[in-house]
């Protein structure tokens, strides 16, 4: 027998993500899903952000990691709530893992929830975790053709941060090429150049966060 069917393969994940998103919106919590290759500086970016904006926002982090809890410990040192999800080799986080992790987070009086996804540019892009925005983090020690090789992430992200710009004099990374290839699949993509090590360019990122928090709070009052 033929069974006529057109069903989204990710429907179960998307259903839970929609439920999470509704809850985050009701509470006015901005949720950002940070996606990058391993070693691009996701944890460094979070350390900087959590420390620099500690007096301004109440923030929490869900850390996705293949094995260790090193990143969660680094992030928790800032005083922010941090929960570790150990994927035991799994290449991405999904909405039910987030739902589970939220049991360990106090969502009352929270302004921003960061999800640090597993280091991988392909798989995490497919799985909605209830976030407001995916943030693509790229570093200049990777190839400048990453946006061309992995266009879907840059298509779905709302912002791209280019990290480790202090190393630009020492590497063959063409910033304009990376920017043009990312914008070719996403004309509205915000692009920010930062160095977490030298603390450069982070003000643009913080202003982006401030605007996003404000927009989310306003949406929750609608």
């Amino acid at each position: 027998m033929e069974i006529p069917v057109v069903r989204n393969v990710l429907e179960a994940n998307d259903r839970i993500a929609a439920r999470l998103r509704a809850d985050f919106t009701r509470r006015g919590i901005l949720v950002l899903n940070i996606i990058s290759s391993p070693g691009s500086g996701k944890t460094s970016l979070l350390e900087r952000t959590l420390n620099d904006l500690a007096g301004e926002f109440r923030m929490a982090v869900i850390e996705g990691d293949l094995q260790t809890d090193n990143d969660a410990r680094r992030v928790a040192a800032s005083g922010a709530q941090a929960v570790q999800i150990n994927t035991e080799g799994g290449c991405h986080l999904n909405s039910s893992m987030i739902s589970e992790a939220l049991q360990a987070i106090n969502l009352e009086k929270l302004d921003i929830l960061f999800i640090e996804n597993v280091g991988n540019l392909v798989c995490p892009t497919e799985f909605d975790c209830g976030e407001d925005a995916k943030i693509a983090l790229l570093s200049v020690t990777e190839g400048d053709d990453k946006p061309q090789k992995y266009p879907y992430l840059f298509h779905k992200a709302k912002a791209m941060l280019l990290n480790k710009t202090d190393l630009l004099p020492y590497v063959d990374f063409d910033v304009e090429k990376a920017r043009a290839h990312a914008r070719a699949v996403n004309a509205d993509l915000a692009v920010m150049e930062v160095s977490c090590r030298t603390h450069t360019g982070l003000d643009a990122w913080y202003d982006w966060l401030r605007a996003a928090v404000k927009a989310k709070k306003e949406a929750s009052h609608d």
């Binding site: 069974i3 989204n8 393969v9 990710l10 497919e126 061309q148 298509h155 070719a184 699949v185 004309a187």
Partner: peptide, 27 residues
């Protein structure tokens, strides 16, 4: 994606109308 429009030759970004999503569509 990164080439000029084959019709008008302009280089502004295209909008993507197809090529994403994963569906089970026949059993």
């Amino acid at each position: 994606l990164y080439a000029p429009c084959p019709a008008c030759g302009d280089t502004v970004p295209f909008s993507i109308t197809e090529g994403e999503g994963i569906f089970l569509d026949h059993l």
